[in-house]
Write a protein that binds this DNA or RNA. Structure first.
Lengths: 339, 339
DNA sequence: TTGAAAGCGCTACCAG
DNA sequence: CTGGTAGCGCTTTCAA
């Protein structure tokens, strides 16, 4: 009575076999009605809970998935994690948290966890693959892994993401539409794919509008606020400072706005600023940040759905591209008169 | 060669017993040196990885812990999660993510996961306990659970947190020190313990300074930005509007600053604002937010350490109170001359 | 529709 | 120090 009941206990108590109890409780397998209810009732009465380890060992599945991000301290992932967690729960999966910290060894460890049976599948939000240099992709592609948000070069793992190029291009088009002709860009950490795509989108928009792309207008950032502040400073001290700055993420946009203010420049009066990601409270900034919004929760959910498919051995999932939206808020305005 | 090797395979290959292999690989148990290296080498050669489910079943531990938060979308938890994850990793544990969404049923589910052997212990960051009304605490206290950040009334579960009362009081003292005499407070969702403590800290500071505590100066919030904006509006329209507003969290402080600005009031020229939590990018606000900073990552690490102790059956851990720090930044300044 | 029995892969006990 | 061996608790054939 005090010990944890096992399936055998309830079988004994009811005079049926463990097999029947198992079938009744797991819902699978036909069990006659009278027996079924009796078993269910007894299980409830004894407060029976199946032992997951035993079940996992037998079924060779853990019913959990691994979600690996580059930096768990980055609020950017919050909504995505929320989406993943939600979809996982609905499908009966638990979510294991992985934090790669951009460390290849750590990433390799997480792959090992997959092989160990720690998790049945993995959602990767890091830009790299361990041992990728060895062209080991075929081996990896066989694992139930879905890539979200990031792009992994030279890999054809199923993935769900946004069109970073188009989103960046559209953001810059918005600035051009406001009459800006001097539009600078603070990139993410090049040569990462995501940063490159956003940068190329900026370039493309300028090019199609016949605007020059002076090299000094492309400042190489790293997604961090402080760096962006410094780079913004350099931009301001150019002989022809930009009237608009497009940042590869919101955090850098915050830094830029801060720095501009510090220099007594008005946003958007003197300089317009556009971010990317629409992180938590971006709209609560003052002025609210104009930025590219990604459907993060949906991306998380979609990634999890895709992973469920992959784990079911479905045919290789087609890459999914989710729509983005340019949120035009308070940090962008008409280009100032330059003379 | 293509199949996943098991312990038996490597035992056969080397002509030793599975038991020896197990001992050699798990580090425990003495194994003679020549054998040891041979086994290790063979394991590496075969790319052997132990099956976690089997191990878990046998050892009756899952080597993972469950971390349950109220709302995984809230950036407030980020650093704490990071701390937990770090400490867990170092101790060889994985972290399972739980999101209670303030739903008692969900919370109960997570407790069940503990009993199921899904996890060996749990770090709870929700303010409630399932079935607590039934006075079931003795049963729960027996489970390896550590409460972090939150306080659970009528429970003596081990916990690590901050002194919300003192931190709030000190924040308000800071405002009083700046000459403010009309200091309002926007509370969290009362009657939750944390909100109450912060509110009481505010009251205590006013009382000890001999300042009045007009009931209209206590506005009941819910930690949300929008609500705080509205409440700030009410405050502004009082016949005697406050010259300082202490908010129970940063998000509400953002809302307040926003609303004040919208009304053409200067922060901190006309009104000073203090937040609580020091969330991500609070210092990047303009002006940077004066707020109470909690050592969130340390809290996470401490909670995990404490949990490790509890899981080891250590004597009930003493509650741990971590220090807070009032970060005096740009949203607080001398009280304006009221006449 | 139910029961018997064979493991899943590992660890830990008990002998030697 | 090493080997034999008995399970951990569950699911799932295979027969009845």
């Amino acid at each position: 009575m005090n010990e944890r009941p096992k399936i055998k206990d309830i079988a004994l108590r009811l005079g049926v076999s463990p097999a029947t109890v198992s079938r009744a409780l797991s819902g699978t397998g036909l069990v006659a009605e009278p027996t079924l209810s009796r078993i269910r009732e007894a299980a409830r009465a004894l407060n029976y809970r199946p032992n997951v380890s035993a079940r996992n060992l037998r079924t060779r599945r853990s019913m959990s998935v691994l979600m690996v991000v580059r930096d768990i301290g980055n609020p950017f992932y919050l909504e995505v994690m929320k989406g993943v967690e939600q979809a996982a729960r609905e499908a009966g999966y638990s979510v294991l948290m992985g934090n790669s910290e951009n460390d290849p060894d750590r990433e390799a460890e997480y792959f090992d966890m997959l092989r160990d049976g720690h998790a049945d599948g993995m959602i990767l939000m890091t830009g790299k693959l361990p041992g990728q240099a060895e062209g080991d992709d075929t081996g990896l592609a066989a694992l139930p892994v879905v890539v979200a948000l990031e792009t992994i070069e030279g890999s054809d793992l199923p993935h769900v993401q946004i069109d970073n190029f188009a989103a960046a291009r559209d953001a810059v088009r918005h600035l051009i539409g406001l009459g800006h002709t001097r539009i600078a860009h603070i990139t993410g950490p090049l040569p990462e794919v995501m940063s490159t795509l956003r940068r190329d989108g900026w370039r493309a928009a300028l090019a199609e509008a016949g605007l020059p792309v002076p090299p000094q207008y492309e400042q190489r950032g790293d997604y961090l606020l402080r760096t962006a502040q410094v780079l913004c400073g350099s931009l301001c001290e150019l002989p022809q400072p930009p009237t608009a700055i497009f940042c590869a993420n919101d955090e850098m946009a915050y830094g830029v706005v801060h720095e501009l203010r510090r220099r007594g420049l008005d946003v958007p009066g003197h300089v317009s600023v556009v971010g990317f990601d629409d992180i938590y409270l971006s709209e609560a900034m003052f002025p609210p940040l104009t930025t590219v919004s990604q459907p993060r929760a949906e991306i998380g959910r979609a990634a999890m759905s895709m992973l469920l498919g992959v784990m079911d051995g479905d045919t290789p999932a087609a890459p999914l591209v989710m729509p983005t939206e340019l949120k035009i808020r308070g940090t962008t305005g008409p280009a100032p008169n330059l003379h």
